[in-house]
Write a protein that binds this DNA or RNA. Structure first.
Lengths: 222, 222
DNA sequence: AAGCGTATGTAACCTGGGTCACACACCCAC
DNA sequence: GTGGGTGTGTGACCCAGGTTACATACGCTT
């Protein structure tokens, strides 16, 4: 991808206040960081030297249990920032989660001084950063509720609905890892869904047959 | 409580950069908000008109399930801010959790303009705010892990250990609500702890007999 | 002391979901 | 073809924890 100032602003309108020359400087190809899928982003807690903006691809943030089971905390998509990475910069908190590139990704690292100046001078950029934080907080609070109070079939149904498109490509193992469960259970539940005509199962793919059915299952009282 | 500038700074050193007169203005008794225990802070999502600093008391932030079961997400203590409240200000995110004064509390609301100016001009205050956010994020991520992967006895043991002091005053119901469980289970587990000589049970109180024992239980592989 | 409200004990039972141990089934490379 | 890797189906079993339904027990008021 060629990154143009206009393209950058389209993803990050809150950068609008940067002078044109600095914007151009950020867009130089050397400023971009391209990493292959599977890269571990902050497992090794290397000190991050800036505020990362995700331009392309997707990052998943994951907790790993002692047993080896995994669970997705959230994803970072283009237009967002991997605030968790920046948090070690901003908040000096040690994080225990793992960040991993789900796809090949392109990052733009806002150097610390640039970030500091933007936050200090640009109310709009500040709002953007605060917004990122509070979105994540809200998401995590929601996740706690779901894990603590909702049954797995409901969470699975919700997960299926969240993927847009009629058919979705994922292994049962991958779904289990998003939910913090194990493959067998996901298979069992999916079989149940299929028996109710909610989905059609195939190797590495799941066809959504009845969105409304799934939705009502996901929202059922208990 | 009489609030003096020195007292305020002791709790919130990051306010050090405020000019003396403004600091004094914040400390006027009229600026303080005193609320009785049990006050609902942002259930009704009244728009918050500033950034709240907690001076005295403690606030609990709680999720309530459809079934009526509750679960503590985190507490806000003096020296912190109820960022979640401020988040609706900063991030415009709708929150679904409930905030409640656990004890009588004293709040100081930083008016929006003062907050904005501090964040814009004072790197130290900015750091403080970012730090609050990232602490909460880390805590919530930890909580997700515990709820998803740890058994209740381990979480209960950890909870008991977290309270300092040898004996702790709480009903089983209250402990259950912190954990997102129910009274009977907490009673059952506590009975087990007592049988192992880890705790001594009494009406509305629990004596910690063997901290190390509890600790090793809390950290056991599974 | 009678009576009520609140905290606790506790047993029987149920169920969701995790574990184990397989059997297949598909796909691709050789 | 054939054989191995990767995904899936499935049944038997187990266990943590939630539900229901009580029985006490303690402490307070009247």
């Amino acid at each position: 991808m060629e990154l143009t100032p206009a393209g950058l602003l389209a993803l990050y309108p809150s950068l609008a206040a940067l002078p044109a020359d600095q914007l151009a400087a950020l867009c130089r190809p050397e400023a971009l960081l391209r990493l292959p899928a599977g890269t571990q982003l902050f497992a090794e807690r290397q000190p991050c030297q800036g505020f990362p903006l995700l331009l392309e691809g997707s990052i998943k943030v994951v907790k790993t249990a002692a047993s080896g089971r995994e669970m997705l905390l959230y994803r970072v998509e283009p237009g967002e920032s991997c605030i968790i990475t920046s948090s070690c910069l901003l908040g000096h908190a040690p994080y225990t989660a793992r960040g991993e590139a789900e796809t090949p990704i392109t990052l733009l690292i806002l150097p610390s001084p640039v970030f500091d100046r933007l936050v200090a001078e640009q109310a709009r950029f500040r709002d953007f950063v605060f917004h990122l934080f509070s979105e994540r907080l809200a998401e995590l609070m929601q996740l706690v509720e779901e894990v603590a109070f909702h049954r797995l079939d409901q969470r699975l149904a919700k997960l299926l609905l969240a993927k847009n498109g009629d058919t979705l490509h994922a292994t049962h193992q991958q779904l289990a890892e998003e939910l913090g469960s194990v493959r067998e259970i996901v298979s069992r539940l999916l079989k149940g869904f299929a028996a109710q005509g909610l989905v059609a199962l195939g190797r590495e793919q799941i066809g959504i047959l009845d969105r409304n059915g799934l939705k009502s299952l996901a929202e059922a009282a208990r």
